[in-house]
């Protein structure tokens, strides 16, 4: 009885860590950083040597100074853009998931509604944003709807695919034990769909930000809801190009932060079991 489990029980190899991170994670961080520093240096030097005026192309150092100097007004705009982005992402995730679950319950509902989700997806947001802004009184809600339209589809289509791709033998097993539809959904289909749902969420995170920015551009309103896009427009009219770049930089950093945060959520949720979160040896 003692050695009944002779079949090769694998044990994970010890991970070598440098400064709290696995040793092989460092090149992934250092190499892009090196390229970034190099390009910024070339930019800085080229602008200074050629004496390019700041209203054409400001050097990175000036952009950074502007960002610090205008941080107060820019951070308020950043907050507004973030609010719209996250609200849109949350609604997209909730509605996308709910609709995907509905599709999984009935092929007829999926057949009838899915094409309209595609229509929503392929219609350029710039083209319908003005309409939405006219129809909806509250500009923030109008912006939210625009961002939601852009962010919604990847979550819906990914989750629908995930719910339908549960292991067929497991589906049979649930049938064998006479599981209810609800049990099958909760214990089998939703966990099966989790990796694809999270992948969709990661795409939608970036898209929600883009949707929010595009809608702000179209709305073009100051005062009540002036997000980062409005700051860019404003700085453009006033030819304050460094400020324009500073706002742009904030948008980029926000996008990267969203992508990384959703990646972290994905990793934490899947690390125990999903192939995408596992490292292969050799």
């Amino acid at each position: 009885m003692t050695n009944r489990i002779g079949d090769d029980a694998p044990s994970p190899p010890p991970v070598r860590r440098v400064l709290f991170l696995p040793a092989e994670a460092w090149p992934k961080i250092l190499m892009p950083l090196l390229i970034g520093i190099l390009s910024l240096s070339v930019w800085e030097i080229a602008v200074r040597v050629n004496d390019v005026p700041h209203y054409v192309l400001p050097p990175p150092s000036v952009i950074w100074q502007t960002l610090l100097r205008d941080w107060h007004s820019l951070s308020v705009s950043l907050g507004i853009t973030l609010q719209i982005t996250f609200a849109a992402l949350a609604v997209a995730a909730g509605l996308g998931l709910a609709l995907a679950v509905l599709f999984a319950q009935s092929k007829w509902i999926e057949l009838s509604l899915f094409p309209y989700a595609v229509v929503l997806q392929v219609t350029p947001i710039v083209a319908i944003a003005p309409l939405i802004i006219i129809w909806v009184d509250d500009i923030r809600i109008a912006l939210l709807i625009c961002a939601w339209i852009v962010a919604f589809f990847p979550i819906l289509s990914n989750t629908t695919l995930g719910l339908n791709s549960a292991d067929h033998n497991l589906v049979d097993l649930f049938r064998l034990y006479r599981a209810s539809r609800f049990q099958q959904l909760v214990f089998l289909r939703l966990p099966s769909a989790l990796p694809l749902f999270l992948a969709g969420l990661r795409i939608s995170g970036g898209l929600a930000l883009i949707g929010a920015i595009v809608a702000e551009f179209v709305a073009g309103t100051g005062g009540r809801a002036s997000g980062l896009a409005y700051r860019i427009l404003e700085a453009g009219y006033q030819l304050q190009i460094p400020r324009m770049f500073a706002a742009l930089l904030l948008i980029c950093l926000t996008g990267i932060a969203i992508f990384l945060a959703l990646g972290l959520i994905q990793h934490l949720a899947l690390r125990h079991w999903h192939e995408s979160a596992l490292k292969r040896e050799g």
């Binding site: 033998n169 497991l170 049979d172 097993l173 214990f187 989790l194 079991w273």
Partner: peptide
């Protein structure tokens, strides 16, 4: 089943 058919997430 021929495959173990386990739920990988648990």
């Amino acid at each position: 089943f021929q495959e173990p058919t386990l739920m990988p997430w648990t």
